[in-house]
Amino acid sequence: METDEMSQVEEPRERPFEWWHHSHPTFAGITGFFAGMLFVTAVPGAFVGILRLLFTYETAEQLFPFVLLALALPIFLLIKRKTRRFAQFMFVGMVVTALVVLGVASLVLYFMVDA
């Protein structure tokens, strides 16, 4: 077999994650939105869990407002130009998640008090 025939016979191999395009226009939006959802739910929960393991209940309760320092991460992402689109969608995910949680909690409270 000649080299020309070999190059025609062999097909190029696909890499396993060829479909996962980091530069795709919706990649930053989708990952940012879900990162915001996770940020609103998991970060405060993990923070209070760690505080409760390390300190007494009263001390953990006093230190809990320091979870607001975690907002420095999305703000820093907004400042940097390369991560700005991701951070914008992260804020959207954070706001939507907070609104849904507050809305559901208020409806549950309303129906519990009304009944």
Rank of each mutant, 00 (worst) to 15 (best):
P12D: 09
E2S: 15
Y110M: 11
A72I: 15
F34V: 08
F17P: 02
A72S: 14
L53W: 13
T59P: 00
V101I: 14
F89E: 02
V67Q: 12
P25H: 02
K80D: 10
Y110R: 09
L68I: 06
V48F: 11
V9E: 04
L71P: 08
R52F: 04
S106H: 14
H21D: 14
F64P: 00
R52Y: 07
F76R: 15
R85Y: 02
I75W: 04
T83R: 10
S106Y: 15
G45Q: 05
Q8H: 11
M112D: 08
R15N: 11
E5Q: 12
L109D: 04
K80A: 15
E18D: 13
K82I: 02
L78Q: 10
L38K: 01
Q62S: 10
P25D: 03
E10S: 15
F89R: 00
T3N: 12
V67G: 14
T26V: 07
D114K: 13
E5F: 03
E2A: 12
E5V: 12
R85E: 04
P12T: 10
L51I: 07
A105I: 03
P12R: 08
G32V: 00
M94D: 04
P65Q: 07
V40K: 02
A70N: 01
M94I: 11
L102E: 10
A98Q: 13
D4A: 15
W19G: 12
P74G: 08
G103Q: 06
V101D: 12
Q8R: 11
I79T: 14
E11I: 07
V100P: 02
T31K: 03
P16L: 13
A98T: 13
A105G: 09
L73R: 06
E14Y: 08
V113P: 01
A105Q: 09
V101K: 14
L68A: 14
K80G: 08
Q62F: 08
F76A: 15
T26R: 05
M112T: 05
S106W: 14
S23D: 13
R81F: 08
V100T: 07
K80T: 09
V40I: 11
L69H: 06
M6T: 05
Y57S: 15
F91Q: 05
F91A: 15
F111E: 09
T31D: 02
R84D: 10
L71D: 14
T3H: 07
P44W: 00
L109F: 08
E14C: 12
F76N: 15
P74S: 12
